[in-house]
Structures are given as structure tokens and as C-alpha cells.
Design a protein around this nucleic acid. Structure first.
Lengths: 339, 339
DNA sequence: AAACGCATTCAAAGCGATTTCAATTTTTGA
DNA sequence: TCAAAAATTGAAATCGCTTTGAATGCGTTT
């Protein structure tokens, strides 16, 4: 069922039918009604490729996912938020996965050159992010989930990682902890740097010295976290509290604590960052987990909105959102043990 | 940079340039070389929409993700496998997310009518799956990840859930367990039914009666699993072993066991199904987790291959793959306790 | 009654690729 | 050497839509 068929069926020109369906004013109301009824009845939907070619808009936004490290469980949550909003505008989400760093830039180039997408979403940026710079060079609009240091303006949405860690660290200090381990993301990533900043700020505000042995910069997997936490717990004096970068990290730390024969919440405290997964509930852990919490799904949904604004012509320099992070105290964070 | 520009730049016709780039035989080798060099140098890439309109192929495959229940961590793993293979063919993956059941069918209709994708991938089918039937009615090619009972032939790839659970259950029976709880997926889903079949078969082979109180049919979240396991552990006689449907489920059961003051691997045994997540390693748990294992990422990659074959004209009736599931025994499964 | 304005409708020109069919050049064979 | 065959190139049609610019019909105004 093409536009032409529909037009012939109605005894109208393609022009009029097209206009009727797209809500142009210069078509008689009775005609419009007749057209939309026929379209509905015959199940007409414009051919996506033709529509895109004619309008010059791709009707899609793109995301490039780094296979190994980045993908993780966060992505599906984010996608879910993003997709919900985009679907209402009939905009597709095109995901591309790549294995290596080089492939990644090539993927952005490819998407841009073939005009497959109208805009893109960038994740987990580094302080100096070449993907962002590339997209700006290519003049592809994008919204950054996170922040980066660029000389040019960038549209972004980020959570307040610095504030989050400052509060969490301060709280642990309040509870008497002095040896607080930070299981952070890999160096270079903006969010990791921001978290470190918050952690450092809280420590120095109390005059607590920073011990590099208590900081880990690794991927957020339970395995790595387990190993890191395990070796940190062998330090003397050992850390009495952990700041875990993600829920997966928290699970690993959790196991390390138990294997060392200690109890979470009394012998050792922990506050983990929770991106809010429906299948992994901090409130329902045992003991319940204190968290810094921010829904990554909501971020996805909001970024979709920002993307639409961006495509609607809103200036990049006006698209910045910094979201506060909740600190939710539960059982896993308690007073420092008295030795 | 359009084809026209490139052709003018080279002093050739669009026809010749197009042919040269697409490897048609009727173009002089020297010309082809000159063209491809210029294309590379100028970074020419055919406009995706135009190409699609001209060829009639969408150059994309679609997936519809149910927001709430389905998305989960499995999806990103699967996507990663799928994407790796598709990228090599310059085929996009279009993901659409939906909230409700109704929206879902509408989404398939929409994608089909607008010819946005050449084929689709279906997940977690039910025994009688209306999405699959719809796609067949709409004549949209698709590969099913899982199986369904349809009168018409369907292309599918599935793991041997029945065999997997039969082995796992048998193994637990060998270890002396008689009260074996099954935390299965929701009723109606083919994989859940298949798993139940395997479980039942193993029980009845030993003449062990089936106790409905020991079977749960829920979503694979740690929270639900925790609650279900908790209440099962209050039964008398209590279950001495658990079959967990996923790693998330396993985490929930794990907590329930600990909270009940018991030890996994001695007081209670568990075998969990592992879809192999890079961030959650059964081998590295404490105690290490016995699993039935099958990589969902590999499944994604293979389904991409099948999809390409399907689009290449291979008959649907010849596209069936049943993958065996490994049983990996580790510390979480031990002999039944002697009361 | 002619002219004007307004509301509708339509024919045709894109959008940027592929592909059919025709034209041109080069090679081959007698 | 010249016609026929083969190799190479190009003009124009096509894909299905949007959109520009022109045309039509009809009630008002002068």
C-alpha cells in the first residue's frame, strides 16, 4: 500500500493525500477525514526510506556501544528510558556495537557519512573525549550522557558525581570511619574523576589523609571488585568502609567481606552507587544496602527529550542538566568498629 | 558528498561510479581503482535512505523490547553478540521499546508497514506466540530466539532447556536431594515450560513425587527470588536444593539462604542457569556457583548469521538450531544434608 | 459581468541512490 | 582492413515520498 495506491483509491492526488495525513491546513476538513479513515482502514504507513529521503531527516538516533566494557546492564535500562520517549515521535533507535576503540570512531564516521541518524547519544565520556570532538567536527548533533572538557559547547545531562561522593564520604567520616576505600571506575572517565574529586574534598575537609592503596580504578564487574576488595581487606590497618562504584561492584565487595569472615554493616560499611535496576534491589539486600541513587532509566528518558529539543533547534549551549544524587542510608553503613 | 558530486569530481557518470563501488563486473579495473580511491579520500558513503529506497531493502533488522519485564541484563549481552556480526554487513539494528502487550503488537505492525526493517528478532516466546503469528501474517521474516508451537514453520535458535534441567535435576537427585525447588520463569513462556518438562522428567525417572509448593513461576529478579526462596525455606520439610532460573535469581536465593542462617553448598545446594555475563562470574562467587551455562552473547551472534541466511533466501524450514547446555559443577552443589 | 480573493486541489520537480537500456569505444577474427 | 563481438560508459527511468508553483472552482466585490 503506497501513497499512490491510496490516492487512486480515493480519487485524489498524492499531494492532497500527503497533506491531509501530515496535517497541512490547506486541505478541506471533510477530505482530511475521508483520507485518514481510508489510511487507517487500509493500514497505510509511509515508506520509511522514501519519507526519509524526501524530508532529509533520518528519523533515527544512534548509539554506539562498546562491546566488552561498556555495554553492561546499564545500557538496557538506559535504552528502555530512551525508547519510551522516542517511540512517541516515531524515531528509531539504531544501535551499533563495536569491539575496539578504533572501530568505534570508524562507526561514528560511517553513521555520519551515510546520514543514517539525525543525532547521537554519547556515553561514559572521558575528560578529553575524541568521540565528542569527532562528532562536533562532523557536525552531527548529539547529547552527552556525562560531561567532557571541550573548548566547544556540548549538550549534556549528567548526575552530580562529585556531590554524591562528597556526601557519601562525609557520612562515613561522620560515622567515625577513617580508612575508606573507593572502588572507582577506570581513570580518565569523567564520572570517575568527578567521584574522586568528591571523595578527596570530603577527606581533606576533615584532614583525613588520602591513601592511594585504598583507591581502585577498575571496571564495574563483581569479579574485579571482589579481588580488589579482597586485597584491600588484607591491608593493615584495613579499610572499615567501602564506596562501591556500582551495584555489581557492591556484590563483589560484599563477597570479599563475607569471605574474610566479617559482617557488612558492623565490621565493615559500604555505600554503593545504584543506577536502579528493576532486577537488583538495594532495599531488598541482606543487609539492605546504603546507596547513592540515580535512575539511569530516567536519564535515558530525559535525554530523549533533550535530543528532541536539540533537533528542534534549541541551541546546544542551553542544553545542560546536572541531576542531584540521592543518598539513601540503609543497614550496610554503620559506625566504624572500635579496635 | 553525494554520488553526483563524486561522479563530477571524477568526470564520470553516476552509473559508472555506482557500479565501480558496488563491484559490478562491467567496469574497467583501472576505473574502479580510481573511483574507490577517490571515494575513500573524499569519504563518500552512499546516503542510507536513498540506497534503501532504491534497493527496496531497509538495511536494518528490528527488535522490540518489552520495557518492564523483558529488557533486563540479558538483552545487552544478546545485542552485543548480534551487533558484532551485523556491523560487518552494514546492517543496522533498530530497537523499539514498548510498555504494554498491546503496544507491542502495534509496534510490530508499525515496523512492518513502514518497511523500516528487513527482518526481526523475537525473544522469549510463549508456546502460542501471537507476535510470531502476526509477523508470519505480515510476511516479515524473523528468527525466533527460543521456540513456539505454530502450525507454520518458523526459523529459530534455542538452547536445550529441557535437557539442561533434566541433567541438573538428576545430578541433584544423585547427590541425595529429594526436596528440590525450581525457580522457573513465568508460565506460558516456552523456555519455562521446557525447563519444567526436564525437571519433571528427572523427578519421575527416580520416582520422586512432584510438590507444587516447590515450584515458583516468576520474573528473574533478585527481589522476587529472595521472597520466593525465603518462603520455600520455611516449608517443612524444607527444600535442600534450588534450581535457579537465572543468575539474578541465584543472588536472591543466595541471600535467602544466608538470612535463614544456612550455608550454601552444605545446608542447601543450588544450580543456577548462567547466561554468561562478563560482570557476574559464577566461577568467582563465594562459594562458586554450579551452573547450567549457555552464552547468550554467542546466541546473538549466531542469530545474526541465521538472519543473514534467511535474508539470503534460505528456507525457514531449514533454519533450526538447538544448542546443548553445559552443566558446570562447582561448590554450590553438594550432597544432601543428613537430618 | 468582469475582476478579485480565497479555499482546494493537482502536476511535476525534487531527494540520492540503483538499474535498464542504449551508446560508444575497443578488441577480435576473417 | 573492416565488420562483428566484447568491453566499457552514460542517459534516463525508477524507488515512494514531500513540496513548489500553478490551476481550478466559487462566492464577493465593484
Amino acid at each position: 500500500m503506497r501513497l499512490k495506491d491510496l490516492a487512486e483509491h480515493l480519487g485524489l492526488s498524492q499531494t492532497t493525500v500527503s497533506r491531509a495525513l501530515n496535517g497541512y491546513p490547506e486541505v478541506k476538513e471533510a477530505t482530511r477525514l475521508r483520507v485518514s479513515e481510508a489510511a487507517l482502514e487500509l493500514g497505510y504507513r509511509p515508506n520509511a526510506s522514501a519519507l526519509r529521503l524526501a524530508t532529509g531527516r533520518a528519523g533515527a538516533v544512534g548509539m554506539v556501544l562498546r562491546g566488552a566494557d561498556e555495554l553492561g546492564p546499564h545500557m538496557s535500562e538506559f535504552l528502555s528510558g530512551l525508547g519510551g520517549r522516542m517511540a512517541t515521535q516515531d524515531i528509531d533507535i539504531v544501535v551499533t556495537t563495536v569491539a575496539s576503540q578504533q572501530e568505534e570512531l570508524a562507526a561514528y564516521r560511517r553513521l555520519a557519512a551515510s546520514q543514517r541518524v539525525d543525532a547521537m547519544i554519547l556515553h561514559s565520556p572521558t575528560l578529553k573525549d575524541e568521540r565528542a570532538e569527532l562528532l562536533m567536527d562532523l557536525k552531527v548533533p548529539f547529547v552527552l550522557h556525562g560531561r567532557t572538557n571541550s573548548t566547544r559547547p556540548v549538550a549534556w545531562l549528567d548526575i552530580d558525581n562529585t556531590g554524591s561522593l562528597e556526601r557519601a564520604t562525609s557520612h562515613l567520616l561522620d560515622l567515625g570511619h577513617r580508612r575508606i576505600a573507593l572502588l572507582n571506575g577506570v581513570k580518565g572517565r569523567t564520572f570517575a574523576e568527578h567521584r574522586e574529586l568528591g571523595y578527596m574534598a570530603a577527606l581533606s575537609a576533615r584532614g583525613v589523609p588520602f591513601d592511594p592503596a585504598l583507591m581502585g580504578n577498575t571496571a564495574f564487574t563483581d569479579e574485579v571488585a571482589f579481588r580488589t576488595a579482597q586485597s584491600m581487606l588484607e591491608l593493615r590497618p584495613r579499610p572499615t568502609a567501602f564506596l562501591a562504584g556500582s551495584m555489581m561492584t557492591a556484590l563483589g565487595v560484599f563477597r570479599a567481606i563475607r569471605q574474610a569472615g566479617m559482617t557488612l554493616g558492623t565490621d565493615v560499611s559500604m555505600i554503593a552507587h545504584d543506577d536502579v535496576f528493576p532486577y537488583l534491589n538495594a532495599d531488598n539486600m541482606y543487609p539492605t544496602m546504603s546507596t547513592t541513587r540515580s535512575s539511569i532509566r530516567q536519564a535515558g528518558s530525559r535525554i530523549a527529550e533533550l535530543l528532541l529539543q536539540l533537533l528542534g533547534g534549541k541551541p546546544v549551549s542551553e542544553i545542560h542538566e546536572l541531576w542531584p544524587v540521592e543518598l539513601v542510608l540503609r543497614e550496610s553503613s554503620g559506625p566504624a568498629p572500635l579496635f
